[in-house]
Computed example of a mutant assay.
Amino acid sequence: MAQYIIYFNQQWVGDHPEEWFAARGPLAKAVVEEIKAAGAYVFAGGLEEDHGKAFSADATSGTLTFTDGPYTETKEFLGGLTVVDVADEAAARLWAGKIAEACGWPQEVRRVG
């Protein structure tokens, strides 16, 4: 078994009316329930959209410092993620495809470790 992270940047979501998002929620929840039923679920969740509420920890100078806000200012930031534990890349592709269809925006997939 291998773990894969399936994730999206908030900017990939696009602009949609509130009704569109409301219709996507149940679809995404259904896919998560399907992943759980298949025994592949590790974790899933959306992240706080206000990236100003993020904070950073940095020890590269030899001294640990915490800074309010993201580590670097960027136009893209992580919007949400799902971690699955599956037999192979084909299974990771299956779940990523289902999540992309349910959410209505692209997903990126990477194997963990």
Rank of each mutant, 00 (worst) to 15 (best):
Q3A: 12
Y4I: 01
I5E: 11
Y7A: 05
F8T: 00
N9P: 07
N9T: 10
Q10I: 07
Q10D: 14
Q10K: 10
Q11I: 08
W12C: 00
W12K: 01
W12N: 02
V13W: 06
V13A: 07
D15T: 15
P17Q: 07
P17W: 04
P17F: 04
P17L: 06
E19W: 09
E19Q: 10
W20C: 04
W20N: 02
W20F: 09
A22E: 14
A22S: 10
A23Q: 07
R24Q: 11
R24G: 01
R24T: 05
P26D: 01
A28Y: 01
K29P: 03
K29E: 06
V31K: 05
V31Y: 04
I35F: 00
I35T: 00
G39R: 11
A40H: 13
Y41E: 07
V42I: 11
G45M: 04
G46T: 03
L47A: 03
L47D: 02
E48S: 06
E48Y: 08
D50F: 05
H51C: 11
G52I: 07
G52Q: 11
G52V: 05
K53Q: 12
A54S: 13
F55V: 10
F55E: 15
A57V: 13
A57H: 15
A57I: 13
D58Y: 05
A59W: 09
T60G: 14
S61R: 09
T63R: 11
T65H: 12
T65V: 12
F66H: 14
T67F: 04
D68G: 08
D68K: 10
Y71N: 12
T72F: 15
E73V: 09
T74R: 12
T74M: 14
T74P: 07
K75E: 13
K75P: 06
E76T: 04
L78M: 12
L78C: 10
L78K: 09
G79C: 02
G80H: 00
G80Y: 01
L81R: 08
T82V: 13
V83L: 11
V83H: 09
D85I: 07
V86W: 02
V86S: 06
D88P: 08
E89V: 14
E89K: 14
A90E: 13
A90W: 08
A90N: 14
R93E: 15
L94K: 12
L94Y: 13
L94Q: 12
W95F: 04
A96Y: 00
G97F: 02
K98C: 01
K98W: 02
E101R: 02
A102F: 00
C103M: 09
G104P: 00
W105E: 00
P106C: 02
P106D: 03
E108G: 05
R111Y: 13
R111A: 15
